[in-house]
Structure formats: structure tokens, C-alpha cells
Design a protein around this nucleic acid. Structure first.
Lengths: 322, 322
DNA sequence: TTGAAAGCGCTAACAA
DNA sequence: TTGTTAGCGCTTTCAA
């Protein structure tokens, strides 16, 4: 690959002059500019971003850390991030933590090696001191996305609030027993439970982790048999909801007539499912766009203002399943 | 961020000695090694990959170019690529071409700027001379994945063959009219049509591009009204299939009783749809793994053997929709 | 076994 | 307006 020095030799100018031309510095004579540009074009010159970055100038690389790119929601988020970053001239290094904190930590090291200008992350344990400490030790800005991390720039939807929103809706809709699919400490479940408790429904809610089909089918069957109050399932994400719908069909339980189902994330497929899935929409594109722009502003203006905590509101998307 | 020179100063050795220690060169005295390692650990040293890459040594960066990361199939593929690359110590720069050849070309330039060691790509126009020429001009190995590109390393499933496989299955299943959803030049459609033509069914097959719901619904309705031969829809990917199922439900046409539907890719959701989706499985993980390993072997052993064309076979996954 | 010196390709400061 | 020089952090000779 041809270098500036080489072009300089071929066009009989100094190498810094080539640099000036290629960087659009106005104070070069038109003839030299022409000669250099022609030569660069002819030899298909490409800047060596490594050499440039070495001199301390920005690498225009962003680290993007997500938990699981195969999940449609994060795939979509990543896509938005990539589009937005590209618009501003940045490329992204992608890393998948797979919900493993060791991977997460390793990645933050890798990211430093490549001297990325900043990091966008969906952290695993956003509230843990380790995450906070680790981020604080990095020498580049880090923005947390989709989760709220105290003391760090965060662009997120408030999961407890969203959980409460779902509870209110389901209760209003006449449901009187509730099953949440996901981890007990999931913010959505916390807010869901809390709303129900505050409205006298605290003893009719439980949760279940979805591990595999059979285990879950049994658990669901058992739960349904326990009572004949009108029941609703709140799935922690649309993928769980999809699986719940499938099992209910196996059990020949009709949705929403016998059991209501609501998901979370409003992934693409939800609108086409049978029955169409009620769910909670996160403003993915907006969140991604604002997070990227905020990060890049911090980078480009060496902005050291206080961390922002930007909460986005969720929106109930009501379709056929509730 | 601390540098080798800094560590050298602190430990009273020369900077190259620090380099030796950090690179595990055996010929350094144990005491020095200890001192240097301790200092590096204490100051949380991280190699500057840019400086290293500048010296011509590998960057351990791979460019990954996909058409649409938001499509579950490519999200899955990317995930597998990332896992496999990380196992061998490489990080990936991700690009989304969005089926736009301009983006594609731009990315190949960006990738050169960062001096990636190699590229894995899902090209848009894998058979076009432009793609071939562009790849040939790059000075790093490029491996084409999921598509077959003549003259270049390719790890793919043969789409025409898969299309033929689908045709044979549908015909055998008693279907007598066929609609393919996708572009006319799609390899799957080519093979599909060819098989049908060879078996006297060439005049009962057509195709339709899915642009938006209404346009497609009308087209589908019209097509269904044209004849009452037993009809099947072959969707170019599972996402199309999902939409076809939805429209058929709107039209109150039962699947598979009145119309059969088969998808392509075997994305995760297919097994949970109602009805469960028949589809064609690509061996994603295997394809990704072999492609990455092949690419890395080329890189690491400066292997300049002839291009390989590795075709993977697809597998019909028969569920409820046909 | 260790150090000195050079150089990768670029930007930035300073001179001319 | 252009060139000279230095230096970013590292690896790689070559000497000692």
C-alpha cells in the first residue's frame, strides 16, 4: 500500500506537503494539490489510520459492547448505532459479552489496546460497583445504553416504571393473576410487583425463569392449574413471549381468551405473530442516536460535564394477545 | 496510559527489554522479568495495538461486512464469527451494507485504513465483476460467506440447489402452483424454477418482490384468485415467510390446508410460529467457523493457495406450514 | 542477556 | 506556501 512518503517522492514535494493536501489544508498551491491528488488517486492511496492514531489523534473507532447480538432487539440497536456512528465518520468494533462478566472485562481491555475514542455498552451488571470502577478507570468516555448505571452517562428506559405500566394495564384489563418470565431481580419485575402490591394484588404474582421448553411447560401448567382467576403472563422479552405463546398453543389454551400474554421490546416479529403480540416498545432508534451523539460530543469537545441520565419512556403496544 | 518506555524508566531497564518481557521472550533474567511484570500490572499497562500494527505486524483486526445485521440470520452469523474470531485472538470491525453497493465499497476502503488482517464478507453482488475486481485489489485476504463468489474463497450454501430441493419437496407434497417471494435473480428462485421446468411445472411458477404490506397483500390475493390448483409460497427468507403467514391469516386462508408456506434460513422464531414454519436450514455455525478458520489460516500462514469454494448442504426442516 | 539505534506512516511545530 | 525536524509506541536488527 502506497504511503505519503512515496507519493512525496513521486510528485517531488515533501511528505508533510502531501499530508496537507490529503487533509484539505487550504494553503497549498493548486498545481501541487493537483499533482498530489492525481498521484494518490492513481495509486489508490488509503490513509494509515494506525499511524495517525499513534500520533495521538482520534482513531475514529468506537467500542460497542452488547450482551447478545443474536437477540433481535440488540441486533436492531447495534444497527442503529452503526448507522449513526458512520454518519459521523466512526467505525465500530463489536463485542458480544454473552452475559458473561469475564468477557465484558476482557473486552474493555481489548478496546483500550486499540485506543478507541469511546465505548457504548450494554453492561451486564450496570448497578454493580465493579462495572462503575472499571469504567472509571478507562481513559475514554463510556456511555451506557438501554440500562441505567448510576454515576455514568446512561441512555435507557426505566425498567421498573415500564413494569408498573404493564401491571396497571393488565389489572385494568381485568387480569387478576400474574406470572413474570425472567430473573427475580429484573427491574421490570421489581416495578411490576411493586405496582401490584400497592394495589392489593401483591399475593397473586410470581416469576419463573425460562430455561428450557419442558421445564417451562411444566411450570406453566402447574401455575395455570393453581387457580382459575383470570391470568396473564408478562414475558421479560419478546423471545420469551414467543415461547410462551407456543406452549400455550400446545396446551390448547387460547390467547387472550383464557390467558393474556404481553412481551417486551417490540421486536419486529411481534406484529406478525398469531396472535399478534402485545408488548412494550422501547424507542431503540432514538436511544441509539442520542447515545451515540452524546458520546461523540464528549469525545470531540472533550466535554467533561456531569454524567447524564436520560430516561426514555416506553410505550404500550396493544395487539391481540392481551 | 502507561507505555513501555515509561515502565523501562521505572524499572531501570531498556525499553526493548520491557518489550521482550511483555512478549514472553524467554531470554530475560527472572529478576528483571518479575520487576517489569509487577510494574506493568501495577500501572495497568495495555499494549498500544496501533503502534504495534504500524510496525507491520498483524493488527488482529478483522473486517466483517454483512448486508443487514438486523436480520436474525445475519445476527446469528455475526455472533458465530465473533466468537470464533475471539477464540483466536481477533477483534472485529462491523459494517452493515444495507444492501447498498456504495456502502459496501466505502467499507472496503475503511477496512484498509485500519489495516485489518482480513475480511469476511456477505457481498451484495457476489457474482459481479466489480466485486471480484475490488476484492482482488485489496491487499488482505477476503473470504465470502453465505454466497458463492467465483474465483474467491467462498463458504456458502448453494442457493440454486436449495431452491431445487424445495421445489422437489413441494411438488412431492402435492402442490401444483408456486409463488416465490424475492428477487427474480435470487439463486434460490433460479434453482426452484429450473427444477419445476424440468418436471413439467415451469408454467405455474412466478415470483413477487415484497415491498410493503398492502402491495403484497393485493398481489397475493390476485395470485390466489387466478387458479384453484393447490398452491405453495416459497419465501426467500423466514422474515418474508412470517409476513406471508400473517397476510394469509388476514385473508382467512388456512395454512397448510389451503396454501403451503416454506421459508428459508431456519431462524430461531420459526419453530415457535403458529403454524410452525417449514424452512430450509443453513449450517450457520459450521459455515462461520470454517470461514473464520480458513481466513485466519490464510493470514497467519501467508497461505496463497488457490481459492476454495466450500459448499455446505442445506437441510429441509419440515414443520406445520407445508 | 541486555542496550542502542533505526524506522513503521503520520502530524505538528518551527523555519525558511 | 513549502520544507525540515521531531516524535507518537512499538518491534527489530545489531552490538556489547
Amino acid at each position: 500500500m502506497i504511503t505519503m512518503a512515496e507519493i512525496a517522492r513521486l510528485t517531488h514535494v515533501s511528505q508533510p506537503t502531501v499530508s496537507r493536501v490529503l487533509n484539505g489544508n487550504p494553503k497549498v498551491s493548486p498545481e501541487i494539490r493537483e499533482r498530489v491528488l492525481a498521484c494518490a488517486r492513481e495509486h489508490d492511496y488509503q490513509l494509515n489510520a494506525l499511524a495517525k492514531g499513534l500520533k495521538g489523534s482520534p482513531t475514529h473507532l468506537l467500542g460497542v459492547l452488547v450482551t447478545d447480538i443474536a437477540n433481535g432487539f440488540f441486533a436492531d440497536l447495534t444497527k442503529q448505532i452503526e448507522i449513526c456512528a458512520r454518519e459521523r465518520g466512526y467505525s465500530i468494533i463489536l463485542f458480544n459479552s454473552d452475559y458473561n462478566p469475564d468477557n465484558e472485562q476482557e473486552y474493555l481491555d481489548v478496546v483500550r489496546r486499540y485506543r478507541v475514542d469511546g465505548v457504548l455498552a450494554v453492561p451486564i451488571r450496570e448497578t454493580s460497583p465493579q462495572w462503575y470502577d472499571y469504567v472509571k478507570r478507562l481513559d475514554v468516555p463510556v456511555v451506557t445504553i438501554t440500562r441505567r448505571a448510576t454515576g455514568l452517562d446512561s441512555f435507557y428506559v426505566d425498567h421498573p416504571t415500564a413494569g408498573g405500566q404493564v401491571a396497571a394495564y393488565l389489572a385494568d384489563r381485568g387480569y387478576r393473576r400474574f406470572l413474570f418470565i425472567g430473573k427475580e431481580y429484573d427491574g421490570k419485575y421489581v416495578g411490576f410487583r411493586q405496582w401490584l402490591a400497592e394495589h392489593g394484588l401483591g399475593d397473586v404474582v410470581t416469576h419463573q425463569v425460562l430455561q428450557n421448553h419442558d421445564q417451562f411447560r411444566q411450570a406453566l401448567e402447574r401455575w395455570l392449574a393453581e387457580s382459575d382467576l383470570r391470568a396473564a403472563v408478562f414475558a421479560g422479552n419478546d423471545i420469551y413471549a414467543l415461547q410462551v405463546l407456543d406452549i400455550l398453543r400446545e396446551l390448547q389454551i387460547s390467547v387472550p381468551a383464557q390467558v393474556g400474554v404481553i412481551g417486551f421490546d417490540d421486536t419486529f416479529m411481534g406484529q406478525y405473530l398469531n396472535p399478534r403480540l402485545s408488548t412494550v416498545r422501547q424507542p431503540t432508534a432514538q436511544m441509539a442516536r442520542q447515545a451515540v451523539n452524546w458520546l461523540l460530543d464528549r469525545i470531540e469537545h472533550a466535554d467533561a460535564s456531569l454524567p447524564v441520565q436520560r430516561a426514555f419512556s416506553t410505550e404500550l403496544v396493544l395487539r391481540e394477545s392481551t
